[in-house]
Design a protein around this nucleic acid. Structure first.
Lengths: 192, 192
DNA sequence: ATAATAACTGACTGACCACTCAGTTAGGAT
DNA sequence: ATCCTAACTGAGTGGTCAGTCAGTTATTAT
């Protein structure tokens, strides 16, 4: 693996686990087995390193979603919606550190002063909500999902599933114990 | 107002808006119109100042909730649950900075190494979920709410409402536009 | 083989920041 | 009026950290 990528990976883990501000570039250098100067050679500043992580995350989410949905045939929008909840949960497990980053305030902080950061965040967020919206729309067409704004319904589903991931992240409650109840609640929200 | 309280108030706003790590004690001192040394006279360390803010928040939440529920007669658990959603939304507006603090990662960070911080967080969180649980239980007794674990149902309601507050905080979406849909979804989740 | 460029290194720097401390001021008790 | 203590002050300190830079090593082109 190239050193540039090693730096990105190590920084993703450290920024997610310790936070952007609480992670020094010296720590990133040590964790990636690289001299401090090397980081600044590849990513001019700490901020640009963080942006690269976000960009990487965005591309991964889009790619994973496309790969999951492609070649898949759902009998109904409702079934697709349930699969999207499952997919979101497994994605947040597989990309644990990136989701942890998304659940920190660091990125939103940076987004206030940095346009690119805001754009990346919106793209990630839109991609995730779009997942649910696609399912809702399809369900509304085939009659398995009740009417109402598809976008708003998708956002409510998003808050429910994302809240569960957050419970897990903060170790306030084990997510797995809530999954059946959550899926059940989502079904109730969607039912015509 | 005593200087000690002025410091606490200024620090709450600054920690919420700029983050714990990004706020220097010099800024807190300036914002509260006090010398730097005065802060350390009242609150030994930055960490203890933060804990005092959390303690203050916990007590306020409990007090506000008690005051709201006392002397109020709900015709059914379902109506109480709807009122709890409303109450949560208005509370998060009235105590905007404290809720912002709760939505940052700072507190959860500190909780990992500081027992008191973890206890305060759990107390705040329990108080909020208890609100919903009380309503669900009552609804299950009078038949206005369906059966199932009251705690889990309360947690799902919590994630839905809290997710909405978060949307607002991060300025990703205007909360008010989602409120009617949210209340409607909560009703669906609760219905027998 | 030589030159040219890209990748890499780590000691160093200037800025910042939590916290200290020696000293001053305000308030209350007798 | 005198004493005592609590409240308050701000210049100073030691430590940390993002970013620099002059120099070294690896890679590629000719």
């Amino acid at each position: 693996m190239k050193k540039k990528e090693m730096i990105l990976r190590a920084a993703t883990v450290l920024f997610a686990e310790k936070g952007y501000r609480d992670t020094s570039m010296a720590e990133v250098a040590q964790a990636s087995g690289v001299a401090q100067g090397t980081i600044f050679y590849h990513y001019d500043t700490k901020e640009k390193l963080f942006l690269s992580i976000l960009r990487d995350f965005k591309e991964s989410v889009i790619q994973e979603f496309d790969r999951h949905v492609r070649d898949r045939n759902y009998p109904s929008g409702m079934v697709m919606a349930e699969d999207m909840v499952d997919f979101y949960l497994s994605l947040s497990g597989a990309m644990e550190h990136q989701f942890l980053l998304l659940h920190r305030h660091d990125a939103y902080e940076l987004a206030r002063s940095n346009d690119e950061c805001r754009d990346q965040l919106e793209a990630i967020y839109n991609c995730l909500v779009d997942m649910f919206e696609t399912a809702v729309r399809r369900g509304q067409q085939d009659g398995s999902v009740g009417n109402g704004s598809a976008r708003k319904t998708a956002m409510i589903l998003f808050t429910m599933v994302d809240g569960l991931v957050r419970f897990n992240t903060y170790r306030l409650y084990s997510a797995s114990a809530l999954v059946p109840d959550l899926i059940d609640s989502c079904r109730k929200v969607l039912q015509p």
